Amino acid sequence: MSTRTEGLLSLRPEIEGAAIHPQASAEEIFQNKTLRPVLKLQNEVLAEAFINYAVKQKGQFFSLSTEKKLQYIENAIHRDIKFRNALKGMVIGMFTLDEYKEYITNSSNLNKRMMNLLIERLKDQVQILVQA
């Protein structure tokens, strides 16, 4: 294992409830083994990136009702391709070389899983996403 790989893996938090079942698909295994820990590790920077995005979009997010904020999060990530690609880059940059090689074999489906997990993570934190 390279120093980079060891360093990246040592940074990742353990995820409770993300057990790998024998009948799990390769995508599900990648999601639980790689995506969830990386998203948890990168949580602060991803949340800050969203706040920055919302501020640059005239800050309307911060005055919305909670339900509208949830819709805004989903729409921002689904519709703004540049923003979505920036978020993907923050996640993919934390992959080991082997994980990246696995990712590129099925990037389309894994991107969907990654963005869905990220959307849910941001929605779960909607009350703390406030303008600095």
Score class of each variant (00 low, 15 high):
Ser2Ala: 08
Arg4Tyr: 12
Thr5Gly: 01
Glu6Trp: 08
Gly7Tyr: 15
Gly7Arg: 07
Leu8Thr: 02
Leu8Asp: 00
Ser10Tyr: 09
Leu11Val: 06
Glu14Arg: 14
Ile15Thr: 04
Glu16Leu: 15
Gly17Met: 03
Gly17Asn: 08
Ala18Met: 07
His21Met: 11
His21Cys: 07
Ser25Glu: 01
Ser25Ile: 01
Ser25Thr: 14
Ala26Leu: 13
Glu28Thr: 12
Ile29Leu: 08
Phe30Asp: 05
Gln31Phe: 04
Gln31Lys: 08
Lys33Cys: 03
Leu35Thr: 00
Val38Cys: 06
Leu41Met: 03
Gln42Thr: 13
Asn43Gln: 14
Asn43Lys: 11
Val45Gln: 12
Leu46Met: 04
Ala47Leu: 12
Ala49Leu: 10
Phe50Ser: 07
Asn52Lys: 13
Lys58Val: 03
Gly59Glu: 02
Gly59Asp: 03
Gln60Met: 05
Ser63His: 04
Leu64Gln: 03
Ser65Asp: 10
Gln71Leu: 14
Asn75His: 12
Asn75Val: 08
Ala76Asp: 06
Ile77His: 04
His78Leu: 10
Arg79Tyr: 10
Arg79Gly: 14
Asp80Gln: 10
Ile81Arg: 12
Lys82Ile: 14
Lys82Thr: 14
Asn85His: 13
Lys88Val: 04
Gly89Met: 00
Gly93Cys: 02
Leu97Lys: 15
Tyr100Ser: 01
Tyr103Gly: 01
Ile104Cys: 06
Asn106His: 10
Ser107Lys: 12
Asn109Cys: 07
Asn109Phe: 08
Lys112Leu: 14
Arg113Met: 11
Asn116Pro: 00
Leu117Gln: 11
Leu118Phe: 05
Glu120Trp: 05
Lys123Pro: 02
Lys123Trp: 00
Lys123Arg: 08
Asp124His: 10
Gln125Asp: 10
Ala132Ile: 00
